[in-house]
């Protein structure tokens, strides 16, 4: 156990150091995830009309939470994995006594750590777009002070979101064993994620039947669920974590099956 912990710490440290080298780039990456802030403008204006379930302040809080969750659950494993497979760099990794999947996971964790200070600054800046999100207004009075359990659950939810996205993308990435150029087809799952996860539409504004259907898919738990916990505190907790658990198990099994089948098929340099 201690040796496993030591390995994890060492690898996280290495990837953290690697990422910090490209600090300036990380700022740009953070800006390129500014979609929630654009959508915040559209929805705050819509919320102010009073025609929607959320009012302007609630919209602003929701999208600031979305921005934060998005920053901490960025997953790009498919691009890395494709490159490793196509260039044959996966071969030496297979010789090591540790599953390459851990390497990819820790690379993401290292990047998240290096991103953290920038994320905090950017989130603070978000409030300048709609300051009332902080101290409330006539419709939603009171400061936005998430309670301790809200924060704890949101952090747990955020990491569930990361695990779900990672498993989904990593399973899709296994296609690289057969098709080589798999990152281009990644849009087939990225676009449903974009529109059904709550980045673009606060899901409670969907018609009730559509909301019920979407809640059985893994997408809302990748953004909407943790963001709603943080912004509002009212979320279907039991059902939420249950659905997450089922999807994690399903995707895990799919991933392992594809990994084994893929390795048999793998025929890059030296394999």
């Amino acid at each position: 156990m201690t040796s496993a912990v030591r390995k994890l710490r060492a690898m996280t440290g290495v990837y953290y150091a690697l990422m910090v080298e490209y600090r300036a780039e990380i700022v740009l990456w953070a800006v390129s995830t500014s979609l929630p802030l654009i959508m915040m403008g559209v929805w705050v204006q819509a919320g102010a009309s009073g025609d929607f379930k959320l009012d302007a302040t609630q919209m602003a809080r929701y999208f600031i939470a979305v921005f934060l969750i998005r920053q901490l659950s960025v997953v790009w494993v498919i691009h890395d994995f494709e490159w490793q497979v196509v260039s044959g760099r996966l071969s030496p990794l297979l010789l090591q006594p540790i599953d390459p999947a851990w390497r990819f996971v820790l690379m993401h964790v290292g990047e998240q750590l290096s991103r953290l200070p920038i994320v905090l600054v950017l989130t603070a800046l978000c409030f300048s777009l709609y300051p009332a999100a902080l101290w409330g207004d006539a419709q939603t009075p009171g400061w936005w002070t998430p309670s301790l359990w809200q924060v704890v659950l949101a952090v747990v939810g955020c990491y569930c979101a990361f695990v779900l996205r990672f498993l989904m993308q990593y399973s899709f990435a296994m296609g690289a064993f057969w098709f080589e150029r798999v990152a281009a087809s990644h849009n087939l799952i990225f676009l449903p994620y974009l529109f059904l996860s709550g980045i673009v539409i606060p899901l409670e504004e969907l018609p009730p039947w559509a909301f019920d259907v979407v809640m059985w898919t893994p997408f809302p738990y990748m953004v909407w669920f943790p963001a709603t916990i943080l912004a509002d505190g009212e979320a279907p907790y039991v059902k939420g974590f249950a659905v997450i658990a089922v999807w994690v198990i399903v995707l895990w099994i799919v991933n392992r099956l594809l990994w084994r089948a893929g390795l048999k098929h793998y025929s890059a340099m030296g394999a």
Binding site: L28, V31, S32, T33, L35, A46
Partner: peptide, 18 residues
């Protein structure tokens, strides 16, 4: 990429924004 992300705003009429 960063610019492309900001251009996304063009999907909606500008008067719809604050």
């Amino acid at each position: 990429y960063a610019m492309a992300a900001l251009l996304e705003a063009g999907r909606y009429p500008i008067p719809a924004y604050p």
